[in-house]
Amino acid sequence: MPLIHLWTALPLAKLEVGHHFYWHIGNLRVHGQVFITTWFVMAILIAAAFAASRNIQRVPSGIQNLMEYALEFIRDLTKSQMGEHEYRAWVPFVGTLFLFIFVCNWSGALVPWKLIELPEGELAAPTNDINTTVALALLVSLAYFYAGLRKRGLKYFTKYIEPTPVLLPIAILEDFTKPLSLSFRLFGNILADELVVGVLVLLVPLFVPLPVMALGLFTSAIQALVFATLAATYIGEAMEGHGGEHEGAHS
């Protein structure tokens, strides 16, 4: 794959897009840097969850309070998208989506990964890699198909012809655009954040990139929220049937 090394001549920093630290497992090729940061993120999440639920008090404090706040936030989000009756079963999935993406994005922005030298490529947020976001988006697609089929059986497929069969192509197309837009939105936002910060650091290495970094933190959090909200919306929509108007044509 051809790469344009625009900035390699400069001594300060360099932008690396498209370099990967490949691992070979059998005859499969995987992106090692993604896995390293993913394991880091998973370790953080599991440790936080363990610390929060190890000694549950009626009056919460410390980490338990924080995680309870997060859980209540996720519950509200899911409830508002799926309704009072259905939301409980989907809280783990949507919640893990939110927490995972959130911690991934922020780890990319807050942890100075670039200090760790890899033979090739560099460590960054796992959501910076298209594989991760597509995997998450495909899981969301599977989840909403599963939810619709489980809730409504084969009648789920009547949604393709439900108000009129004329819209059949668009309805089918929607099933492809949903994961596409989900994955590209997340990937593009995170990559754009890191690139903008990278370019600014390249131009002015001190202080000037800080506001952009803060903005990056903000957009990262919003993107995690958007991803989780959309996943919950899609799942809720699939379960709800043709009752309401279709909200599906989001970008």
């Binding site: 919640g95 594989n131 998450l136």
Partner: peptide, 19 residues
């Protein structure tokens, strides 16, 4: 795209179960 994609999906599901 390579084997990272399915492995990430599996990892995510494992994380969901653990969490």
């Amino acid at each position: 795209f390579d084997a990272t994609l399915p492995l990430m999906a599996v990892q995510f599901l494992i994380l969901t179960v653990i969490l």
